[in-house]
C-alpha cells in the first residue's frame, strides 16, 4: 500500500540535496523537489516503490537537462553579462588567498559568491541556506583574514 507521507519523509532530504547539487540554488532545488514529488503523485499507479528514490532523482535531472538543452550558449551565458560588457571584467580572484588555512568551505563560498559573482548578502543567504546574519558574520571573518594576509604581504 502507498503511504505517501512516509515516502515523502523517507526521500525528501536526499532529493533536495541531489537537486541542490545540480542547480546550486536552494530555492530552485525546493521547486525541483516539489515537482518531483508531484510527478510521483501523478504516476503513482505506475511506479514501484522499490524504484525510489532513483525515480525521483531522474525526474529532477531530466528537468534540469531539458531546461539547459533548450537554451543556447548565447542565451544562457553570454546574454547574462551582455548588459554590462562595457564594464571591466573582474581580474580572476586570487585562488591562493582563498586557500588560506584559516578559511573553511563556508567562508570561501561566501567570499567567492560575493566578490567574484557580485552577489548581495541576501542572495548569498538564498543560495546557501544560511541566514543573512550568518553570511555577514562569515564575510567579516573572511575579510579579517584577507586583510591580515595583505598586511603581511606588503610588510614582508
Amino acid at each position: 500500500m502507498w503511504d505517501f507521507d512516509n515516502i515523502y519523509r523517507a526521500h525528501v532530504d536526499s532529493v533536495f540535496r541531489y537537486a541542490l547539487s545540480l542547480v546550486g540554488s536552494r530555492s530552485l532545488a525546493e521547486d525541483l523537489t516539489s515537482e518531483a514529488f508531484l510527478a510521483l503523485l501523478r504516476h503513482r499507479d505506475k511506479i514501484d516503490e522499490a524504484r525510489l528514490p532513483a525515480w525521483l532523482f531522474t525526474v529532477v535531472k531530466n528537468r534540469v537537462v531539458d531546461h539547459h538543452r533548450r537554451r543556447t550558449t548565447e542565451q544562457q551565458y553570454a546574454d547574462r553579462s551582455k548588459s554590462d560588457q562595457d564594464k571591466p571584467a573582474f581580474p580572476a580572484f586570487d585562488a591562493g588567498l582563498l586557500e588560506h588555512k584559516s578559511l573553511k568551505p563556508v567562508h570561501r563560498v561566501c567570499l567567492t559568491l560575493r566578490y567574484v559573482h557580485g552577489m548581495t548578502r541576501l542572495e548569498i543567504a538564498e543560495t546557501t541556506g544560511l541566514s543573512e546574519t550568518q553570511v555577514k558574520g562569515h564575510l567579516q571573518y573572511a575579510l579579517e583574514i584577507l586583510r591580515k594576509v595583505l598586511v603581511k604581504d606588503s610588510s614582508g
Binding site: S21, L22, V23, G24, S25, L28, K61, V64, H68, Q76, Y77, R80, S81, D84, Q85, K87, P88, A89, F90, P91, A92, F93, D94, L113, Y115, V116, H117, G118, T127, L146, L150
Partner: peptide, 22 residues
Amino acid sequence: LGVPIGGRPVCPPLDLLQAFHS
C-alpha cells in the same frame, strides 16, 4: 585587492557550474 567595484564577473554563475559538474 584591486577588484573594480561593479565589474563584470568572468566566472560562470553557480547554477551553470553545478549543471556542468553533474
